[in-house]
Design a protein around this nucleic acid. Structure first.
Lengths: 223, 223
DNA sequence: TGTCAACTGTCAGAGGCTGACACTAGTGTC
DNA sequence: GACACTAGTGTCAGCCTCTGACAGTTGACA
């Protein structure tokens, strides 16, 4: 259970107030970030909108950056629990593939209490198009990759330090995921559907892409 | 030709002085970073060691971060030129594999004028173990990935926006490269040889790792 | 030698972030 | 219901990265 989820069921007035302050700060931050840009938004502007002190902002979020990733954080832990729920018979790669698609299907339920799906999508695109946030995003992905590799290894009864396959498979999978994420962020269609379609098409091309000679085989299948 | 390489052949006294200042700053920075840590080192400490003003540091390096990646920058462009030099008959994945191994073989010649290979290795490990630098490193890798994908696509006469295979293959390749880089950074052996051995072993496992059921096949081949 | 342009230093300041300390307002207790 | 306790907050003061403006210095070149 994450802090966010625990905080979703406040007991007393103090907890409710705390939650309201955090939600207001997060909302104001994401709203400002996505409308006028991340770098262009100062913490002072955020706290001004919520009418709290700057010090308070930094008590809820360790950094300005952390606020930008608050929703992403929830989506990732949602993916991890989907992956843990996958049937043991499934091959590793199929389990990974199934887990992302499921996580995206249920994205609404995951974040509904905090923000609209639309704001989340806008935030994602902002992250992809802001260099410093993209850097942070990739580092978070690396952490996630590590966790996934451990999960996959355990599923298969392997040790990640003995057998390269868990890490290698997860690296390839996450690599493709990032490519689709970036393409989707740069593209025009911003719905979850187009992201899913892109992901499925690209994952299907992983095998063929690694095969020896491309010139003797058939060409494009997605665009 | 990069700025560094052009600056390696100075014409006048002014250029030589400029180069000496830059080299001194870079050396002092990397030395301090690797001995006392990146975050623990202030720009003031660096400029104090070289006896220039802080303002001067920021004229040579856009940021403290940029100094940390100066060598990496050279290595990356060295990899790219190795890749361009690969025979056209080679399959895409083989070309990528060959290019990294060649780039690492000639790493000494690439950076010899600036720093020792040993300092570069220490710097690499520092980058891998410093969260904020790791983030920046991954973003740089993403940029590089994009360039590589364009190169591979051109080699094969494809359009990256039409055929997913260039991006997908490069993503998988770079994913494995990062895994080996991280493992090497965390490990005990710090030579180029151990990095190369690890890379070869892991790249060999890419095919098997994506194949359906791992439990019916043979196990570990690298440690 | 003198002029021009490039490089550098100083100064002032914005913006992210932190520690210390005092104050306010919920919480649990008698 | 009055009490002390504690979590949450604001204020202030300061560090560090990075930038703009302006002035001083030093090679380059006629």
């Amino acid at each position: 259970m994450t802090d966010e989820q625990r905080a979703a069921y406040p007991t007393g007035l103090r907890e409710r107030k705390k939650r309201r302050t955090r939600d207001a700060l997060l909302h104001a931050a994401l709203d400002l970030f996505t409308t006028q840009g991340y770098e262009e938004t100062t913490v002072d502007e955020i706290v001004e909108a919520v009418e709290v002190s700057q010090r308070t902002f930094f008590r809820y979020f360790a950094s300005k950056e952390e606020a930008a990733f608050a929703i992403q954080e929830m989506v990732e832990s949602s993916f991890l629990s989907e992956l843990r729920r996958r049937p043991a018979e499934e091959a590793p790669f199929d389990a990974l593939r199934g887990a992302v698609l499921c996580a995206w299907n249920s994205i609404g339920e995951t974040i509904e209490e905090l923000v609209t799906v639309e704001l989340h999508m806008r935030t994602y695109r902002m992250i992809e198009s802001t260099p410093s946030l993209l850097a942070a995003h990739l580092r978070r992905c690396a952490d996630l990759e590590n966790q996934i590799a451990l999960l996959i290894a355990r599923r298969e009864g392997l040790d990640v330090d003995e057998d390269p396959r868990p890490r290698v498979a997860v690296a390839a999978f996450c690599g493709v995921m990032r490519v689709t994420g970036q393409l989707w962020g740069r593209g025009r269609e911003s719905g979850v559907d187009s992201l899913r379609a892109l992901t499925e098409a690209y994952l299907d091309q992983l095998g063929p892409a690694l095969a020896g000679n491309w010139r003797t085989e058939s060409g494009a299948t997605a665009g």
